[in-house]
Design a protein around this nucleic acid. Structure first.
Length: 421
RNA sequence: GGUGGCGUGUCUGAGCGGCCGAAAGAGCACGCCUCGAAAGCGUGAGUGGGGGAAACUCCACCGUGGGUUCAAAUCCCACCGCCACCGCCA
């Protein structure tokens, strides 16, 4: 959630931010009005409570026949206090619920517009020209079959559409990618983490995933657990209700991720680009708000380093305002070149959430003036299926074999993935 | 899943229904002492919120949420978590 003070001080900016996100700017005025009402009610209640406290003390001190009339008064007051308290907390809840609907204040540097209005920051590498190589590239599903690395048919048989098995070299490829990612993250100073993937509602809410993104999370009704769509959730909630005294803190979480992919019927139905379950190594930073911008660029750089190591052509885009998550003020995506789609497709994403998540999760640090909410940022180091797609398609040979990127060889133990009989 | 015990401030740990935002130790910060340090002595530190230009003042917070009461850390209920033992189990 954003700071009400910020809204009160600069309602115009808040309204403008809502507008470019495609969200309702009227919420700003509603929350200000609700907060005014809340304050008035709170003042009334607190005055009554102060009076009650005094009276109550005098009851305790009174003796004999002095007591009865005082008790009488106190009883009457008690009812009033209760009513005032109920009103105050009702209004506080109302203001809070509006506040929770308001998205983070967008970075004024972010491009304005919808999904199509991103700005390309740079291209790295050149898409391979298969006409020069003299063969038609196969898509990852075919290569996956040839290598006996990906089995989408049995995935569908057992679990339904958008499920798959990684087998043989496919499975080993995941381990190699994860090991490479974790070891480079560790070298960069990240603490590796394997978090829980079932979380309670509060953790989900705190990270901002139960609002607009709610339709995309799996929920276990009976136990009221949510399956996380990214380890960002348990990593952010890791320090919930804590005051941190050492910043920045950087974590690299490795976990399975679960996504309902509601509303994507017919989109990416082939292969493993869009699936319900996959594994991912995610970077997560807690830092001071004033360092967030620089940290965001650092996360992007680590993502680029990884892509470079995989020797895959890609471009970096600055995602437009209307396409940002509720928590993010700015987001950079890396899109890898996918030859058979003749297109760049998203493989990583890094968001600057400033204090938005930390305020909900109550994560602070100490300053001379008191405590302050920290900033949180996240970035994908590697999302396994999409990285596998990119590797298989970009590094394939005419015979169906696939060259393994140099950086991965020590982790995989082979230079080339060979067709399996 | 069953039984028993426990959840208090940075930590340990007291706490009779009103005098408890909370004893006492440790730790922390500052000062004195010292050539410096330790010890010793003194002083000061919780979090969130309302009002106020400010000094300041008021409210809330003793796992969480309800309840009883004029008044709850203290009584009652539910939930959550931790510990121990038993059962089951990868």
């Amino acid at each position: 959630m954003i700071d009400l003070k910020v809204i009160r001080e600069n309602p115009d900016a808040a309204r403008a931010s809502q507008k470019v996100r495609g969200e309702d700017p009227a919420l700003i005025d509603q929350v200000i009005a609700a907060d005014d009402a809340r304050r008035t009610a709170l003042t009334t209640f607190e005055a009554l409570r102060a009076e009650q406290n005094l009276l109550s003390k005098s009851v305790g001190a009174a003796k004999g026949e002095e007591k009865a009339p005082l008790l009488e008064k106190a009883k009457a007051l008690s009812a009033q206090v209760k009513a005032a308290e109920a009103t105050a907390s009702e209004l506080a809840e109302k203001a809070q619920s509006i506040l929770l609907q308001i998205h983070n204040l967008i970075d004024t540097d972010a491009p304005i517009g919808g999904e199509e209005d991103f700005v390309i920051i740079e291209h790295v590498g050149t898409p391979r020209d298969f006409t020069v190589d003299g063969f038609e590239p196969r898509d990852h599903v075919e290569i996956g079959k040839i290598l006996k690395a990906i089995d989408t048919e049995r995935g569908a048989k057992v679990s339904g559409s958008r499920f798959y098995y990684l087998t043989g070299m496919g499975a080993l490829l995941e381990f190699a990618l994860v090991n490479y990612a974790i070891s480079s993250a560790t070298k960069a100073g990240f603490t590796p983490v394997i978090p829980p993937v079932l979380v309670k509602p509060h953790a989900m809410e705190g990270t901002g995933f139960l609002g607009q993104a709610a339709e995309n999370v799996f929920h276990l009704e009976e136990d009221d657990f949510y399956l996380v769509g990214t380890s960002e959730v348990p990593l952010a909630a890791y320090h919930m209700d804590e005051i941190l005294d050492q910043l920045p803190l950087r974590y690299a979480g490795y976990s399975s991720c679960f996504r309902r992919e509601a509303g994507t019927y017919g989109k990416d139905t082939r292969g493993i680009i869009r699936v319900h379950q996959f594994d991912k190594v995610e970077m997560f930073t807690f830092c001071k708000p004033e360092d967030a911008k620089a940290e965001h660029l650092r996360l992007l750089q680590w993502e680029k380093d990884f892509m470079n190591a995989m020797e895959i052509p890609y471009r970096v885009i600055d995602v437009a305002s209307g396409d940002l998550g509720a928590s993010a003020i700015r987001k950079f995506d890396i899109e890898a070149w996918i030859p058979t789609q003749n297109a760049y497709r998203e493989v990583t994403s890094t968001s600057n959430c400033t204090e938005f998540q930390a305020r909900r999760l109550n994560i602070r640090y100490r300053e001379e003036s008191g405590t302050r909410a920290v900033a949180t940022l996240n970035g994908t180091l590697v999302a396994i299926p999409r990285m596998i797609v990119a590797i298989l398609e970009n590094h394939q040979n005419d015979d169906g074999s696939v060259n393994v990127p140099q950086a991965l060889r020590p982790f995989l133990g082979v230079d080339r993935l060979l067709p399996q009989a």
